[in-house]
Design a protein around this nucleic acid. Structure first.
Lengths: 255, 255
DNA sequence: TCCTGTAATATGTCGGAGTAATTAAGGGAT
DNA sequence: ATCCCTTAATTACTCCGACATATTACAGGA
C-alpha cells in the first residue's frame, strides 16, 4: 500500500472487542443479534413502512454498540429487502411488498412475536397449493431409494408418536423425502423455508392440546399413492394432510 | 465516551471514501458490487459447495478494497445463505440446499451468467403449479377494481404488441393484478421474485424468434373465467398460458 | 489415542475523512 | 407579488485502516 501511515501510534481502540454486553441471544454474532432485534421489531409492525430508523450514530450510542455492528446488521436487513439506506434520508423501512417474506430468517422473525393470523393463513394456502403438487410430481419421479427413506420415516413416526421430538423429526424427514423425489430444487427450497417457520406453530399446537386424530393413516395413504405411481391419488391424499394441519393450527390460534 | 483516546494522531484513513475504483457496476454500492461479483461466481459454479474463499485480508488486498467492504459483502451473502464464515476455518460456500434460491437477487445472479437449464425448468414447473392456483383463487376473491385493472392491461396488450416494452409491461400488470386479487401476500412475493428473473429469459425469447402464436386470446380466456367467477376454468386457462411460455422458452434455450 | 498448547483467522470495535442527497434560502422571471 | 430555478449548507451514510479479542484448526507430546 502506498499511504504514508505514521508508524508511531497506539491509535485505534483501547477497549477492544470483548467488553460488549452478553446480548448474544438469538443471533450467533453481535450484529446478528441486532439484526434479529430490528427484524423482529419491523415484522411485528413496530415500524410502519416508510418510517425512518434512528441514525447510525444515534442508534449505535443508544444500544451501546459500535457503528460497525449496527451497519452490518442493517446490511443484513437490506439484503432481505426490509429496509433501504440512502445518504441524508436515513434508513427507511420498505413497503411490505418489497420484503423477502420467504426468507427463512424473515419467516422466523414473523413467527417470533405473535404471528399475524392472516399471514399464517396465506402460508398455509401456499403450502396447500405446493405440497399436493409436489406429491403429484414425486409419484412419477421417485425411485427405490426415495421410497425406502419415506418408509423408514413412516416407521419412525409409528414408533415415536408425533408428541415427541423424534416423531416430529421423522415427519419432517417424510415430507423432505417427498420434496427430494420431485427433483426440483426450487420446490425443495420453498417448502423448506415455509416448513421451518410453520414448525414453530406446530410446537404451539403440541403444547395447546392433543392431536385431534391419528395422522399416521393419512401419511400412509400418501406413501401408498406415491409408491404406486398414482399422481392424482398422491395429490389428493397430500391435500387431506395439509387441510388437517391448517384446520388444526387455525383452531389453536383462534383461542 | 470514556476511552482515553490519545489526542495526538492523524490515524484513521487518509484517502477516505471516494478514491475507490469505478467498479460500481451492478451493485449500487461498493460492497454491493463485490457481493454481486461473488454471488455470480458462486451461482455460476466457479466455487464448489464446501470450497473456501480467500481469506479476508488476502481477498481484500486482491481486489484492492478495504476489509470493511469485503466484510459487508460477505454479510450479504451470509444473509442469503450462500456462505458461512467461521473463525480459522474461513468463509465456506454452503451446500446448494442452504441457498436462498427464491431471493430476487440470488435469482438475478443465477440468470446473469448462462442460466442452468435444469434450474429454469424447475422454476417454470413451480410457476406452472402456483399461477393456475392463483387464478383459481382470484376467480373467487376478485372485486370490480381488480377486474378493471386486468381489463385495462388486456387493452394495453392489444394496443402495443408483446414485442414492445410497453406490451410486456402490460403483460406483467395483468399477471400482477391476478396475484393481487388472491389477497395472499406470500403468493404475491413468490411470483414477483420468480417473474422478475424469468423476464430475463423472456427478453432472450423476444430476440431469438417471433412469438409462435397470438397470446392475446389465451389471456382473454383467463380474464373471462376470473370475471365469471369460475375457479376451475380460470386455473385451466392459466395452465395453458404457462405451458405455452414453458415450451416456448425451452425450445429457445435448447438451440 | 487423547489431550494440550500454539498459531492462524475471523470477529468486534473505533474514530475519522469523504461523498451524496435532502432541505432551505436567495435571486430572477413572469 | 407569486412562482420557479439555482445555489449553499446541513446531515447521514459510505468507506477506510488499525487494533484487540475470541474461537478454532492443527500439530506435537504424553
Amino acid at each position: 500500500m502506498e499511504q504514508g501511515k505514521p508508524p508511531e501510534n497506539g491509535a485505534g481502540a483501547d477497549n477492544g472487542g470483548g467488553a460488549a454486553k452478553p446480548a448474544r441471544g438469538p443471533g450467533r454474532r453481535l450484529h446478528g443479534a441486532i439484526a434479529h432485534k430490528l427484524g423482529m421489531a419491523i415484522l411485528s409492525g413496530q415500524y410502519q413502512p416508510g418510517d425512518t430508523l434512528s441514525g447510525e450514530v444515534a442508534f449505535a450510542e443508544e444500544l451501546e454498540v459500535s457503528r460497525s455492528a449496527y451497519r452490518e446488521a442493517i446490511q443484513v436487513l437490506t439484503a432481505k429487502g426490509l429496509v433501504e439506506s440512502r445518504p441524508k434520508a436515513g434508513t427507511r423501512v420498505l413497503p411490505r411488498n418489497r420484503w423477502n417474506l420467504l426468507d427463512p430468517e424473515v419467516l422466523a422473525w414473523a413467527f417470533a412475536g405473535e404471528p399475524d393470523i392472516q399471514f399464517v393463513r396465506d402460508l398455509f394456502e401456499l403450502r396447500a397449493i405446493v405440497e399436493p403438487a409436489a406429491a403429484r410430481l414425486a409419484a412419477t419421479r421417485r425411485d427405490k431409494e426415495d421410497l425406502r427413506i419415506m418408509k423408514d420415516a413412516l416407521t419412525a413416526m409409528r414408533r415415536h408418536t408425533l408428541a415427541t421430538e423424534a416423531g416430529r423429526a421423522a415427519d419432517r424427514d417424510f415430507h423432505n423425502a417427498i420434496l427430494n423425489a420431485t427433483r426440483n430444487d426450487a420446490l425443495l427450497v420453498l417448502t423448506a423455508s415455509i416448513g421451518a417457520a410453520v414448525n414453530w406453530t406446530t410446537q404451539f399446537k403440541q403444547r395447546a392440546r392433543a392431536l385431534p386424530r391419528n395422522p399416521i393413516p393419512d401419511h400412509v395413504r400418501v406413501y401408498d399413492a406415491i409408491a404406486a405411481g398414482d399422481p392424482v391419488a398422491a395429490a389428493e391424499a397430500m391435500g387431506v394432510l395439509v387441510d388437517l394441519a391448517l384446520e388444526d393450527t387455525a383452531s389453536t390460534m383462534e383461542r
